[in-house]
Structures are given as structure tokens and as C-alpha cells.
Measured scan of single mutants.
Amino acid sequence: MDSLVVLVLCLSCLLLLSLWRQSSGRGKLPPGPTPLPVIGNILQIGIKDISKSLTNLSKVYGPVFTLYFGLKPIVVLHGYEAVKEALIDLGEEFSGRGIFPLAERANRGFGIVFSNGKKWKEIRRFSLMTLRNFGMGKRSIEDRVQEEARCLVEELRKTKASPCDPTFILGCAPCNVICSIIFHKRFDYKDQQFLNLMEKLNENIKILSSPWIQICNNFSPIIDYFPGTHNKLLKNVAFMKSYILEKVKEHQESMDMNNPQDFIDCFLMKMEKEKHNQPSEFTIESLENTAVDLFGAGTETTSTTLRYALLLLLKHPEVTAKVQEEIERVIGRNRSPCMQDRSHMPYTDAVVHEVQRYIDLLPTSLPHAVTCDIKFRNYLIPKGTTILISLTSVLHDNKEFPNPEMFDPHHFLDEGGNFKKSKYFMPFSAGKRICVGEALAGMELFLFLTSILQNFNLKSLVDPKNLDTTPVVNGFASVPPFYQLCFIPV
């Protein structure tokens, strides 16, 4: 009986604490739906499609509103004006990374994606500088992407125009580009180590996009005490870190300090320079996690976009025909596509942009946080508050993009057929937390897609009208449904 009384008292205290925290903070924060004790607004949000729920709530509470995930307040920004004001106009104040408990377990605050403060700034600055020195957006990395595009075309030829699921092959190409940047090595598509790495990356994007992960991140005790797919994700990350550590040891034994070959060499050189400046942010643990982040951000996002792009091109054969006509006119058949071609191919450029806009790969991006107490639109948001960005509300804005739910390359073309930029184009987020590999991803999408369409016609196994382009999961990332196609050599 005594234990029951204690339990009831504990629960009562928890409920009172929950109510007090919510009521004391709500006077400062933007308005929002009334949260339930302990669980907050979790029942009012469709976990399978958070973005749709945010759109519905914005119609009631406006472009800036507050939700509670458990006891934790989260300020939501919906629509271009609110997102721009926060991420661009007040970029420094909104540059923090929001709480992501599962990532905390995986990387302990290291790396480039989930770190904060001085650690994040130094690692991000170093990573950007190193990638630029190796030619991100310049010639040397373009050579690597072109080489991988040629290998991709050869792998597709091996399908002999038979029906195939493109998931694996389209994942190999961007993964190999990242391998060449980090390890100075590309792998054969049949290499077992490479296959294991690909498998872990593919599993992780599916797990991260599941409703279960949303629950884990908002009720963090689940991570330590409950079984579930989150444990598989943590094991996959541990596998990748151990693999990278092996490569780091190989580099330490063979590195030429006067001739760095890749990202690992550059990081080890930085560690050597910083060894007298303790404590340094440049450690082996930081290198492991930064490399894992580059793999995660640079492989599955690009391969998922490529997979979605081919599905949309199957669905819209008239678009595919126009792209192939432009390829034939500008590039021809006797040389590989290059980035200089893009400025002469406005329709193809528009298609690449429209694919990214339409699929809305990361509907709410990753959570941000404010780095200080900030007054925002007459609300006071306390330091450390998590900020949720609705990228969907920007990419699918119906004023900027008429009929935003329709796939239409003319969203990025003017009346004369010239490519038209849009400030609403934010597939990689915006501001200080914009994806480090934005330029690389854009290069890969253009070169891989043009190389495929230069060499193959795409054949659907069903009537294009019957192809479903609805994402199968739409949590962290929008993942396309399973499909097969035939690559018919031109």
C-alpha cells in the first residue's frame, strides 16, 4: 500500500510540474494548442506526416506557434517570411542545433551535424575549407563525379535492359564520391566492405524516417530501456565508426604531411598542428563522427533524390523527352556531361530543381535551437528552445509555385524558357546551418541524371499514369515507394 501511495504522489508531482512548466512558459512563447500533461501535443500531431499537421496548425495559430513534445516546448516556423527572418536575418541567433537524443547517444555531441557552439563552428569551418581545397564546386571533385558517372552508366548497362530496382546502384554512385573525398578511394560496386557500408546507410535513412524515431526523440528514456529499431540505428553508426577508425589508422601509418590526399589526411594534419593548443576540438573521436556525418549527409540524401527523380521522369515521359532533346543538342553522344553545360541547359536545370522542390526530401529539416534569449515577432523565446522549420511550407508555397503539388519544371523557367532562380528554393535548409555539401549534391544530381539520360531511355513496367509517387515514409525524410524500371541503351 505504501508503495502505491508513493507512486501516486510521484505521478501527481510530475503532472503538477508539467502543468507549471507549460503555464509559466506560455506567456512568453508564441500561441499554440493546449498541451496535455506529460505528453504535450503529441496526440494532435500525425507522426506519419508531421508536415501536414504543421500546415493545419498554422492555419489556426499563424506562421509562428508553439507545440509541446512531452514536456519540451518547440517553436514552429511556417512559411517563407518566418523562416527567412529566423535563419537568414537572425542567422546567428537561430544557428543552434536542437535536442536530438538519439544523435546524442550516437555521437556524444561530436561531428558537424549535431554539434553546437565553438566545437560546431570550428569543425564546420575546417570541413568547408577542406572540401573547397579539394575542389568542391571546382574541377578536381567534378572529375571524381564524372568518373563515377561513367562507372554508374557501365553498371546500368550490365542490367541488359531487364527490369531492376535502382535503389542499390543509385546509392553506390554518391557513396563512392564521398569515399573518394574521405578515403581517396572508390570501391567496386561488388566489394563486400562497400556493400556493408551501403547497407547500413540505407537502413539508417529508413529507420530515421519512421514514426518510432519521432517518439524516441521526444521521450528519450525509451532509447535506453525499450527495444526497437533505434538500437539497430545505433549499432549501424557504431559499425561505421569502427570502419572509419580502421581507415584512420591506415592513414596514420602512411600519411605524407607534405601531400595530403583526402579529408582524413587533412584532419590528422590539423590534429598535429593543434596538439599544443589544448583542449582542441580536433580529436580522433571528432574525426570519426565528422566522417560519419559526411557519409550520412552525402550519400543517402543524394541517392534518395536520384531514385525519386527517375520515378518522376517515368511518370512524366514528356519531361524526359525534353531533357534528352536538350542533352542531344548541347552535349551530344561523344563526350561526358560537365558542369559548364548546365548554363546552356535551362530546361534540365529546371527539372533538377523541380525534383528537389517537389519531393521535399527533408520536410522539417533537422531541429534548430536559439543560442540566446531572443525577441522574435513580439515573442520571447528562451535560450536553448528547439525550433522546428517547415521546409515544406517554403518549397510548396502556392504563391511562389502555382499548383505546388504538381510536378512542373516551369516553376523554374521564365516566359522565355530561361532558368529562373527562386529564393524559396531551400531543399538544403538556409542560413548558417545550410548543408555543407550543397554544391557537391547539386553537381552530382546534374551529372548523374544527364549521364543516365544521355545513355538510356527509361521504360516503366506499368502505365506511367498508374505510377504512385507518394512517399512511403514522410517523417525525417521523404522516401519514394518501391518501383522497377528498364534502362534501355540509346
Results as ranks from 00 to 15, higher is better:
residue 383 K to G: 05
residue 325 E to S: 14
residue 454 Q to Y: 02
residue 94 F to V: 11
residue 329 R to P: 00
residue 266 C to L: 12
residue 262 D to T: 05
residue 337 P to C: 08
residue 464 P to E: 07
residue 162 S to C: 15
residue 117 G to A: 11
residue 331 I to P: 03
residue 6 V to K: 15
residue 141 I to A: 04
residue 384 G to Y: 04
residue 388 L to R: 05
residue 3 S to G: 14
residue 196 N to S: 14
residue 301 T to E: 00
residue 483 Y to F: 12
residue 124 R to Q: 07
residue 352 V to A: 06
residue 188 D to A: 07
residue 461 L to R: 05
residue 136 M to E: 09
residue 298 G to I: 00
residue 33 P to G: 02
residue 306 L to R: 00
residue 59 K to T: 12
residue 104 E to V: 10
residue 439 A to G: 14
residue 442 G to K: 14
residue 122 E to R: 08
residue 305 T to R: 00
residue 425 F to Y: 11
residue 283 T to L: 07
residue 149 A to G: 04
residue 302 T to K: 00
residue 159 T to L: 12
residue 410 H to M: 13
residue 390 S to L: 07
residue 71 L to T: 11
residue 239 F to N: 09
residue 418 N to A: 11
residue 128 L to Y: 09
residue 75 V to Y: 02
residue 277 N to H: 12
residue 450 T to V: 14
residue 382 P to E: 07
residue 422 S to Y: 06
residue 301 T to D: 00
residue 252 Q to L: 08
residue 190 K to E: 09
residue 376 F to M: 11
residue 183 F to K: 01
residue 321 A to C: 12
residue 392 T to Y: 08
residue 340 Q to G: 12
residue 190 K to A: 12
residue 66 T to R: 05
residue 475 G to L: 07
residue 234 L to A: 11
residue 229 T to C: 14
residue 94 F to C: 12
residue 14 L to V: 14
residue 360 D to Q: 10
residue 446 F to G: 01
residue 145 V to G: 00
residue 415 E to L: 07
residue 105 R to G: 07
residue 316 H to Q: 07
residue 166 P to Q: 01
residue 376 F to G: 03
residue 209 S to R: 15
residue 380 L to Q: 09
residue 214 Q to H: 14
residue 207 I to H: 06
residue 106 A to I: 15
residue 283 T to V: 08
residue 21 R to I: 14
residue 289 N to C: 11
residue 314 L to E: 00
residue 278 Q to R: 11
residue 138 K to I: 11
residue 350 A to D: 02
residue 330 V to E: 15
residue 42 I to Y: 14
residue 382 P to A: 07
residue 387 I to M: 09
residue 288 E to C: 15
residue 422 S to C: 10
residue 273 K to T: 12
residue 247 K to L: 05
residue 172 C to L: 06
residue 86 A to H: 05
residue 284 I to F: 09
residue 103 A to K: 09
residue 474 N to D: 10
residue 445 L to A: 10
residue 32 G to C: 03
residue 475 G to T: 09
residue 226 F to W: 09
residue 90 L to N: 15
residue 336 S to D: 11
residue 399 K to T: 12
residue 477 A to Q: 07
residue 142 E to P: 01
residue 68 Y to R: 07
residue 427 P to A: 09
residue 8 V to A: 14
residue 4 L to T: 15
residue 131 L to Y: 05
residue 406 M to N: 13
residue 258 N to Y: 08
residue 84 K to Y: 08
residue 47 I to Y: 15
residue 368 H to D: 01
residue 410 H to C: 12
residue 422 S to G: 10
residue 62 G to D: 02
residue 141 I to T: 04
residue 305 T to C: 04
residue 278 Q to T: 13
residue 68 Y to T: 04
residue 230 H to L: 09
residue 387 I to F: 08
residue 445 L to T: 11
residue 331 I to G: 01
residue 284 I to G: 04
residue 34 T to V: 12
residue 276 H to W: 11
residue 412 F to Y: 05
residue 163 P to V: 06
residue 328 E to F: 14
residue 178 I to E: 02
residue 231 N to G: 09
residue 89 D to Q: 13
residue 169 I to P: 02
residue 105 R to V: 13
residue 344 H to T: 12
residue 109 G to L: 03
residue 215 I to R: 06
residue 165 D to V: 01
residue 144 R to N: 06
residue 426 M to R: 13
residue 399 K to P: 07
residue 219 F to W: 11
residue 230 H to P: 12
residue 33 P to M: 03
residue 423 K to Y: 07
residue 250 E to Q: 09
residue 149 A to R: 01
residue 463 D to T: 06
residue 97 R to K: 04
residue 461 L to P: 13
residue 118 K to V: 09
residue 343 S to L: 12
residue 20 W to I: 14
residue 301 T to C: 01
residue 90 L to G: 14
residue 156 L to V: 03
residue 372 C to R: 15
residue 133 N to I: 07
residue 151 C to N: 11
residue 378 N to C: 03
residue 56 N to L: 10
residue 274 E to S: 09
residue 254 S to I: 10
residue 237 V to D: 09
residue 173 A to C: 02
residue 323 V to E: 01
residue 361 L to N: 03
residue 59 K to Y: 10
residue 177 V to S: 00
residue 166 P to M: 00
residue 459 K to G: 08
residue 224 D to H: 12
residue 243 Y to H: 06
residue 266 C to F: 14
residue 21 R to N: 13
residue 423 K to L: 07
residue 109 G to P: 06
residue 125 R to V: 05
residue 333 R to L: 09
residue 78 H to I: 09
residue 3 S to H: 13
residue 273 K to W: 06
residue 79 G to I: 00
residue 421 K to E: 08
residue 319 V to Y: 10
residue 53 S to K: 15
residue 47 I to T: 15
residue 347 Y to N: 01
residue 470 T to Y: 05
residue 293 D to Y: 02
residue 461 L to C: 14
residue 378 N to M: 02
residue 144 R to D: 04
residue 320 T to D: 03
residue 100 F to S: 15
residue 129 M to F: 11
residue 297 A to R: 00
residue 376 F to L: 13
residue 143 D to F: 08
residue 213 I to R: 13
residue 260 P to T: 07
residue 183 F to N: 03
residue 241 K to L: 03
residue 189 Y to N: 04
residue 226 F to G: 05
residue 395 L to Y: 04
residue 5 V to N: 11
residue 407 F to L: 02
residue 152 L to V: 06
residue 348 T to E: 00
residue 483 Y to M: 02
residue 194 F to I: 05
residue 66 T to V: 03
residue 375 K to T: 10
residue 329 R to S: 12
residue 150 R to M: 09
residue 308 Y to F: 09
residue 422 S to I: 06
residue 13 C to V: 15
residue 272 E to H: 10
residue 406 M to D: 13
residue 416 G to T: 13
residue 244 I to R: 01
residue 133 N to M: 11
residue 302 T to G: 06
residue 259 N to A: 15
residue 395 L to R: 00
residue 226 F to R: 04
residue 220 S to N: 13
residue 81 E to T: 10
residue 225 Y to H: 10
residue 407 F to P: 00
residue 121 K to E: 09
residue 75 V to F: 02
residue 9 L to C: 12
residue 129 M to L: 12
residue 59 K to Q: 15
residue 72 K to H: 12
residue 356 Q to R: 06
residue 26 R to V: 12
residue 37 P to D: 01
residue 134 F to V: 15
residue 27 G to A: 13
residue 126 F to L: 13
residue 475 G to S: 08
residue 26 R to T: 13
residue 268 L to R: 03
residue 143 D to C: 12
residue 286 S to C: 15
residue 428 F to H: 05
residue 361 L to D: 03
residue 260 P to S: 07
residue 123 I to M: 15
residue 434 I to A: 15
residue 232 K to L: 06
residue 276 H to P: 12
residue 223 I to S: 14
residue 225 Y to K: 10
residue 229 T to V: 15
residue 79 G to P: 01
residue 307 R to D: 01
residue 234 L to N: 09
residue 335 R to S: 07
residue 145 V to A: 01
residue 225 Y to A: 11
residue 81 E to D: 13
residue 220 S to I: 13
residue 304 T to G: 04
residue 256 D to K: 09
residue 482 F to Q: 15
residue 450 T to I: 10
residue 84 K to M: 07
residue 307 R to M: 00
residue 375 K to G: 06
residue 224 D to C: 09
residue 237 V to M: 05
residue 360 D to R: 07
residue 303 S to H: 09
residue 24 S to P: 13
residue 391 L to K: 05
residue 356 Q to C: 10
residue 284 I to E: 07
residue 378 N to F: 01
residue 344 H to Q: 14
residue 351 V to R: 02
residue 475 G to W: 09
residue 409 P to H: 01
residue 427 P to V: 09
residue 85 E to V: 07
residue 117 G to D: 15
residue 385 T to C: 06
residue 333 R to F: 08
residue 185 K to T: 08
residue 321 A to Y: 11
residue 476 F to I: 15
residue 31 P to H: 08
residue 459 K to Q: 14
residue 253 E to T: 08
residue 77 L to E: 00
residue 400 E to S: 09
residue 199 E to M: 10
residue 84 K to P: 03
residue 390 S to G: 07
residue 20 W to A: 09
residue 366 L to F: 03
residue 116 N to R: 14
residue 470 T to C: 08
residue 462 V to Q: 10
residue 462 V to C: 11
residue 348 T to S: 08
residue 340 Q to F: 09
residue 485 L to N: 01
residue 230 H to C: 12
residue 341 D to Q: 03
residue 214 Q to S: 11
residue 33 P to E: 02
residue 152 L to D: 00
residue 194 F to R: 01
residue 117 G to S: 11
residue 100 F to I: 15
residue 410 H to P: 02
residue 115 S to C: 09
residue 140 S to Y: 14
residue 256 D to G: 08
residue 330 V to N: 10
residue 137 G to R: 07
residue 108 R to K: 11
residue 349 D to K: 15
residue 355 V to L: 06
residue 118 K to T: 13
residue 119 K to A: 13
residue 383 K to D: 04
residue 241 K to W: 03
residue 380 L to P: 04
residue 255 M to A: 10
residue 256 D to C: 06
residue 69 F to I: 15
residue 255 M to P: 09
residue 50 I to V: 13
residue 428 F to C: 04
residue 471 P to Q: 05
residue 236 N to Y: 03
residue 339 M to W: 08
residue 207 I to T: 06
residue 266 C to I: 07
residue 219 F to H: 06
residue 341 D to I: 04
residue 484 Q to T: 08
residue 278 Q to Y: 10
residue 293 D to T: 05
residue 173 A to S: 03
residue 426 M to A: 12
residue 46 G to P: 14
residue 260 P to D: 07
residue 174 P to Q: 05
residue 72 K to V: 04
residue 458 L to W: 02
residue 65 F to E: 02
residue 371 T to G: 10
residue 490 V to Y: 09
residue 278 Q to N: 14
residue 28 K to V: 12
residue 362 L to E: 03
residue 256 D to S: 10
residue 484 Q to V: 04
residue 296 G to P: 00
residue 271 M to I: 11
residue 142 E to C: 03
residue 49 D to S: 09
residue 397 D to M: 04
residue 288 E to P: 06
residue 433 R to G: 00
residue 161 A to F: 02
residue 398 N to G: 13
residue 52 K to G: 11
residue 410 H to R: 14
residue 384 G to L: 02
residue 461 L to I: 13
residue 304 T to S: 06
residue 327 I to S: 02
residue 276 H to E: 12
residue 420 K to N: 07
residue 65 F to P: 00
residue 115 S to D: 04
residue 195 L to Q: 11
residue 219 F to M: 11
residue 448 F to M: 04
residue 381 I to F: 06
residue 361 L to G: 03
residue 53 S to A: 11
residue 368 H to V: 03
residue 490 V to E: 04
residue 74 I to R: 03
residue 360 D to L: 05
residue 312 L to D: 02
residue 398 N to E: 15
residue 410 H to F: 05
residue 141 I to H: 03
residue 459 K to E: 10
residue 74 I to V: 15
residue 365 S to Y: 00
residue 482 F to E: 15
residue 14 L to T: 14
residue 115 S to A: 14
